[in-house]
Computed example of a mutant assay.
Amino acid sequence: MTIAIERAAPKDAYDIDDILTACFPRPAEARLVKQLAIDGDLVLALIARDEDTQAATGMVALSKMHVAIGGDPAPAVALAPLAVLPDYRRTGVAEALVTAAIDEMRQAGALLMFVLGEPGFYTRFGFTPESAEGFDSPYAGPYFMALELQGGLPCGPRGLADHAPAFAALSEDA
């Protein structure tokens, strides 16, 4: 099986919804992606397809964050959600999606990418809890990690690391 990663287009909305609905026990993540798009906070959505069948196998979303370093805004994104259909897990789809997301955001000039996830998975891409330390976030803790995308950060105290408003609904649905 060969996987192709492409930027999601409006025609992919049903596939993305199907993936998120199949991968999460509640509809909150599917609603999150829709709300991020409606609010204009969705920076990028990538979709993975099986090149042989053209079936959608996974997706990842990147959204705007409000981040400050030394009192100045720093371009940053949140990677969430990442979802791969059960039949395609452990086949490299998730890794391909995360790698493509990192490449896209590096090229776009983002300084930081944040994720709330399993360190055993995300540290292989360079995400660390240490890179997220000092940022003021309700998600702060060992599962809140960041990746420095441009090889370093500006000097100054770390401040706010606010996710897009749509993320607040996730904690309300929990």
Results as ranks from 00 to 15, higher is better:
Ser63Pro: 09
Thr99Pro: 08
Ile69Cys: 11
Phe24Gln: 11
Gly58Lys: 02
Gly58Arg: 05
Arg49Lys: 12
Asp41Tyr: 03
Thr21Leu: 03
Glu29Cys: 13
Ala80Cys: 12
Lys64Leu: 04
Gly70Trp: 00
Ala56Ser: 14
Pro81Lys: 09
Thr53Arg: 09
Leu32Phe: 14
Val98Glu: 01
Gly40Pro: 02
Val60Met: 03
Asp41Gln: 09
Ser63Ile: 08
Asp87Met: 12
Arg49Thr: 07
Arg31Val: 13
Thr53Tyr: 06
Arg26Thr: 15
Ala100Tyr: 04
Gly40Leu: 04
Glu51Tyr: 08
Leu20Thr: 06
Ala56Tyr: 07
Gln35Ile: 02
Asp87Ser: 13
Leu79Ser: 04
Gln35Cys: 04
Cys23Ile: 00
Thr57Ile: 10
Ala48Cys: 12
Thr91Pro: 10
Ser63Arg: 06
Cys23Gln: 00
Leu46Arg: 06
Val98Asp: 03
Ala80Arg: 05
Leu20Asp: 07
Leu97Asp: 05
Asp72Asn: 11
Arg90Tyr: 14
Val93Tyr: 05
Arg49Pro: 04
Pro73Ile: 07
Pro86His: 04
Met65Glu: 04
Ile19Leu: 03
Asp50Glu: 14
Thr91Ser: 15
Ala56Pro: 11
Leu44Arg: 11
Pro86Ile: 07
Cys23Ala: 01
Thr57His: 08
Met59Arg: 01
Val77Gly: 02
Asp52Gln: 14
Leu82Arg: 06
Leu62Ala: 10
Ile19Cys: 02
Ala30Trp: 10
Met59His: 03
Arg90Ser: 15
Phe24Cys: 13
Asp87Asn: 12
Leu36Gly: 05
Val43Ile: 15
Ala96Phe: 05
Glu51Pro: 09
Thr53Gln: 08
Ala30Lys: 11
Met65Trp: 00
Pro75Asp: 10
Ala30Leu: 12
Ser63Glu: 07
Met65Cys: 02
Leu97Pro: 09
Arg90Met: 13
Met65Phe: 01
Ala61Ser: 13
Leu46Val: 15
Gly71Ile: 04
Val67Asn: 00
Phe24His: 11
Arg90Pro: 11
Ala55Leu: 13
Ala55Thr: 12
Ala80Met: 09
Asp87His: 12
Leu97Glu: 06
Lys34Cys: 10
Val60Pro: 01
Leu20Pro: 03
Ile19Phe: 00
Ala48Asn: 14
Thr21Arg: 05
Leu20Glu: 05
Gln35Pro: 01
Leu97Gln: 08
Ala22Gln: 08
Met65Thr: 02
Ile19Gly: 00
Thr21Met: 03
Ile69Glu: 11
Pro86Gln: 10
Ala45Tyr: 03
Val60Arg: 01
Gly40Arg: 04
Leu46Ser: 13
Ile38Pro: 08
His66Arg: 15
Leu82Asn: 09
Pro75Gly: 07
Thr99Ala: 14
Ala76Met: 01
Ala76Gln: 05
Ile69Gly: 06
Tyr88Met: 14
Ala28Ser: 15
Thr91Leu: 10
Leu20Lys: 07
Leu42Ser: 12
Pro27Gly: 04
Asp72Ile: 09
Thr21Ile: 02
Ala45Ile: 09
Ala74Cys: 15
Ala68Phe: 07
Asp50Leu: 09
Gln54Lys: 15
Leu62Glu: 03
Arg31Leu: 14
Met59Asn: 04
Gly58Asn: 10
Glu29Ser: 14
Ala76Asn: 03
Ala61Cys: 15
Pro86Lys: 05
Thr91Asp: 14
Leu36Ile: 08
Pro73His: 10
